[in-house]
Amino acid sequence: MEALTQFFAIYGSLVNFIGINAILALSLYLTLAAGQLSLGSAAFAGIGGYTAGILTMKLGVPFLLSVVAGSVLSGLVGLLIGLPVLRLHGVFLAIATLAFGEVVRITVLNLDITGGAQGLVGIPNHTKTWGIYLALAVVGYAIAKLRYSRLGWCFESIREDETAAGAMGIDTTYYKTLAFVLGAMLAGFAGALYAHLNYLITPREFGFSVAVDLLIFNIVGGTRAWYGPILGAVLLTALPEILRGTGITAGPMRMAVNGLILLLVILFLPNGLVSIFRRSASKAKDSTLAISEEA
């Protein structure tokens, strides 16, 4: 028990940060599941975080209500941005969402109500570790179940081939927008939790490098299963600490180590870490079917 207390005293903030990052990675996963490459997740987290933070700090709104408000506002902005922007595909969509992210960051940097470059200071500390992990469990479970509902099949079909999905009766514009808005809401939710964790948030914490980190969590973990982004977020967020434990001070090397891992995963596990699990699962399935033909 004492060991556990000591562990939390040292690593408590890391454990919290891992949970938040996992939820954020899942928010991007929702959008990626429908084949839409977005670099706007960090900005949506910022919208949720600043909204919820301002509400509790300056207006005395209850914590849970502010979290809901942050998610909803983020989702609404997602809808406004998504409708025009989702006409773009692939790299062009990524660039447009990246630009949106910069607009949000610069806006937050220049407004008085957000505290400018100093950030929003003095947000009440409401977010608890159990709260983060309860949220992560619920969100992870819901996303896992979503995969085999009609919505999940629509996302998957659009990701695989948008024209064929349309010919099968899927309203691709509607479902792409829905994926984008759901992702924005979840990012806003995670941002709102994050805002109430450390007394302050700054614009830098929702900038471009965070958007890229979220994408890397998804690529390293894999986007073919709901637990992929969680794996990626856990591994890459904990990595600097693990490295420190082995005596390597990652500090300035962190980005290089992340890059190396990303390179190795892309080369050897193109579908991410989840393909390790899925490969063994499909082998088991094949042997029960007793079909010898090699795929």
Binding site: S149, R150, W153, C154, S157, M168, I170
Partner: peptide
């Protein structure tokens, strides 16, 4: 996936 129009599969 092709059953989209005939199978509601509610969430």
């Amino acid at each position: 996936a092709g059953q989209h129009l005939v199978a509601p599969r509610p969430f």
